[in-house]
């Protein structure tokens, strides 16, 4: 059996910007976007559940940092098979960059392992595996996983998409496939280990109906800054070395370009081919 933690984030659904989420001036109204379980975090949960399928005594705890509403994704994780969820929530965590976020999550992981050394095998709450998505779709930084691993002083395997074997040769050994740009790597790692899961991994299983009925009202612990004995100087905006100097909205209304339209007729296609040919000549390139 393995003691597993999944780090998850509730994010605005930036991939489906429709309807009210678009302001008349072409900018995005972030508040109007639906909040969802970050897709790769859901795949990280699935990878953890696959370990539990094989070793049913394993325990999966899901941790998220966010506002109270983020409890929704913890409940979602319970419905799909996680054992418990912990919401890390405090005003002082607001506006955290990745360094402050990873510090806060590290403190939560340490708290979950009973304030004992989360890596000490003799500690019965010691952690074997931490799974998280490669990146969240609102920030796309892919930093928090490796930073948590660095804070805990454990190795990391990033961009994993499949567990090839676990515990087969040695209880604390795991072999994974990871996806780099155009190659797949097979790596063997010692636990405790942090794994970031990429989008080519298996998709999450659906909710289990029985769990959904029985765990609907399960109490989910909410931990504040004192509960995880975090230093306020290292949390939220205060603990963030990076600051946002300014934000420019990308204007989605696309006025101003003089689009010339063509119909699908031989004459107009000849015309377009001629134009493009002239332009290629002009810029001095490309003829076959």
């Amino acid at each position: 059996m393995y003691k597993i933690i999944v780090l998850a984030k509730q994010v605005p659904d930036t991939k489906n910007i429709i309807g009210e989420a678009m302001r008349p001036d072409g900018t995005v109204n972030r508040a109007a976007l639906p909040a969802i379980f970050n897709p790769e975090d859901l795949q990280a949960l699935e990878m953890a559940l696959l370990v539990k399928d094989r070793f049913p005594q394993s325990k999966i705890s899901v941790i998220t940092m966010g506002p109270i509403a983020a409890i929704e994704i913890l409940r979602e994780a319970l419905f799909r098979g996680a054992d418990d969820g912990y919401l890390i929530s405090d005003k002082q965590f607001a506006a955290a960059d990745t360094l402050a976020t990873s510090y806060t999550l590290t403190q939560a992981i340490k708290t979950l392992s009973g304030h004992g050394d989360p890596l000490e095998p003799k500690n019965e709450n010691a952690i074997d595996l931490i799974f998280c998505g490669r990146q969240a779709i609102d920030g796309d930084t892919a930093q928090v996983g490796p930073q948590v691993a660095a804070n805990l002083g454990i190795p990391q395997v990033t961009y994993a998409f499949e567990i090839v074997d676990i515990g087969d040769h040695h209880k604390n050994q795991i072999t994974l496939k990871r996806q780099l740009d155009d190659v797949t790597e097979l790596v063997r790692a010692q636990m405790p280990l942090l794994i970031t899961v990429t989008d080519s991994a298996s998709h999450a299983r659906p909710r289990d109906i029985r769990r959904t009925i029985f765990l609907r009202k399960k109490k989910i612990p909410v931990w504040n800054i004192r509960d995880i004995t975090a230093s306020p100087d290292r949390c939220g905006l205060k603990g963030s070395p990076t600051n946002v100097l300014k934000i420019n909205s990308v204007i989605l209304s696309l006025e101003g370009k003089n689009t010339q339209t063509f119909e699908a007729t031989p004459q107009s296609m000849d015309k377009l081919a001629k134009i493009l040919r002239a332009e290629l000549h002009q810029t001095g390139t490309l003829e076959r």
């Binding site: 339209t261 699908a264 031989p266």
Partner: peptide
């Protein structure tokens, strides 16, 4: 994509693409 295009061909690709390819081959 049409709004950010310099040149937009509107219609069924099944018709427009073969015509365009034929035109290119003629010209080049």
């Amino acid at each position: 994509i049409v709004k950010i295009s310099d040149y937009a061909v509107i219609g069924d690709l099944k018709q427009s693409l073969p015509l365009f390819i034929a035109s290119l081959r003629k010209n080049i």
